[in-house]
Amino acid sequence: MGQTPDDMFGDENHPAYTIGQAAEMLNTKQDFLRRLDEAKLINPHRSTGGHRRYSRYQLRLAARVREMVDQGLALDAACRIVILEDQLEEALRQNRNQQQGARRRD
């Protein structure tokens, strides 16, 4: 069963944006987004026609890299920093969830 519009709009991982829309939202060129794919920062969903589709989550990562690149950081370094920040945020989230679960059991 497919997602309803309410499910899709609430899902930050839903691939809702074309590469053109994403580039416009980030005020960048489509090539920048392709380079992020090549750098393995984001792996956009592919439509049945092979077109890239981006989620809000992916656009947030891309925006953060764009910010760093605009400040003079090399693209590969910016991607690595964003990946590490994202991994740290996820680890902290999991840790908080485990601690909350442990407190409920006590």
Results as ranks from 00 to 15, higher is better:
residue 1 M to Q: 12
residue 2 G to F: 11
residue 3 Q to I: 10
residue 5 P to T: 12
residue 6 D to S: 15
residue 6 D to P: 01
residue 9 F to R: 15
residue 11 D to F: 11
residue 12 E to K: 12
residue 12 E to C: 10
residue 14 H to R: 10
residue 18 T to W: 07
residue 22 A to V: 02
residue 24 E to S: 15
residue 25 M to D: 07
residue 25 M to L: 15
residue 26 L to P: 01
residue 28 T to H: 05
residue 29 K to E: 15
residue 30 Q to I: 08
residue 31 D to C: 01
residue 32 F to V: 05
residue 33 L to H: 03
residue 35 R to K: 14
residue 36 L to C: 05
residue 36 L to D: 00
residue 38 E to P: 03
residue 40 K to R: 11
residue 41 L to S: 01
residue 41 L to W: 04
residue 44 P to L: 02
residue 51 H to R: 11
residue 51 H to F: 06
residue 53 R to H: 09
residue 58 Q to S: 08
residue 58 Q to D: 06
residue 60 R to A: 10
residue 62 A to D: 05
residue 63 A to C: 05
residue 64 R to F: 07
residue 66 R to C: 05
residue 67 E to H: 06
residue 68 M to H: 07
residue 68 M to T: 01
residue 71 Q to G: 01
residue 75 L to H: 04
residue 77 A to M: 15
residue 82 V to L: 03
residue 83 I to P: 00
residue 85 E to Q: 13
residue 86 D to N: 11
residue 87 Q to S: 13
residue 87 Q to F: 11
residue 89 E to G: 10
residue 89 E to P: 03
residue 91 A to G: 05
residue 95 N to Y: 14
residue 96 R to C: 05
residue 98 Q to C: 08
residue 98 Q to L: 15
residue 99 Q to R: 09
residue 101 G to Y: 04
residue 101 G to S: 04
residue 105 R to Y: 11
residue 105 R to S: 12
